Amino acid sequence: MLASDLRVALFSGNYNYTRDGPTQALNLLVGHLLSQGAAVRVYAPTIAKPAFAPTGDLVSVPSVPIPGGRDEYRLATGLPDTIRADLEAFAPNVVHLSAPDILGHRAVTWARARGIGRVASLHTRFDTYMRYYHIGFTAPLLVALQKRFYNRVDRVMPPGESMAAILRGWGVTTPTPIWSRGIDHDRFRPGRRDPAWRRSLGIGDDEVAVGFLGRLVKEKGLDVFAQVLAELRRRGVPHKALVVGEGPARAAFEAEAPEAVFAGFQSGDDLGRAVASMDVFFNPSVTETFGNVTLEAMAAGVPVVAARATGAVDLVDEGETGFLVPPRDCAAYADAIGRIVAEPGLRAALGEAGHRKAAGYRWEVVNQRVVDTYLEVAGAARA
Rank of each mutant, 00 (worst) to 15 (best):
D206E: 15
P80I: 09
Y73W: 13
I135T: 14
A251I: 10
V153K: 02
E88R: 11
G21L: 12
G56E: 11
R70L: 12
A48R: 14
K147S: 07
A378Y: 04
V228F: 11
Y129S: 02
L103I: 11
F188R: 05
G202N: 03
A249S: 15
T128G: 01
A307W: 08
L346R: 12
D269I: 12
D186H: 13
E259W: 02
T124M: 08
E256V: 00
P67N: 06
G21T: 11
R7M: 04
D269F: 09
T55H: 10
V210G: 03
L58Y: 09
R199Q: 14
K218A: 15
E318A: 07
V224P: 01
V108A: 14
I83C: 03
G311R: 04
R155D: 10
V325S: 07
T138N: 00
A85G: 09
G78K: 06
G272Q: 06
R125W: 04
I166P: 00
P62W: 13
M163K: 00
D127R: 02
T55C: 15
A257Y: 05
G13Y: 08
T18D: 05
P140W: 06
I183H: 02
R193F: 07
R234F: 03
S277P: 02
V210A: 08
D5T: 06
T173L: 11
N93D: 07
V293Q: 10
Y129I: 01
R308S: 11
E364R: 09
T138P: 00
I47M: 05
V243S: 08
Q36A: 11
A257K: 01
D329S: 14
E254S: 11
G171P: 01
G31L: 02
R193K: 14
A113R: 15
R369I: 02
P62Y: 13
L324Q: 07
E72M: 09
V224K: 00
G264I: 12
A76S: 12
A111K: 02
R215P: 03
G247W: 08
G204P: 02
D223C: 00
L26T: 08
A111H: 09
V377Q: 08
G379K: 05
D57Y: 00
V143R: 15
G191I: 09
V237Q: 06
A9N: 07
D101Y: 11
G182F: 06
L28T: 15
K218D: 12
D317T: 12
A165Y: 01
V325D: 10
R189D: 05
V366Q: 10
P190I: 13
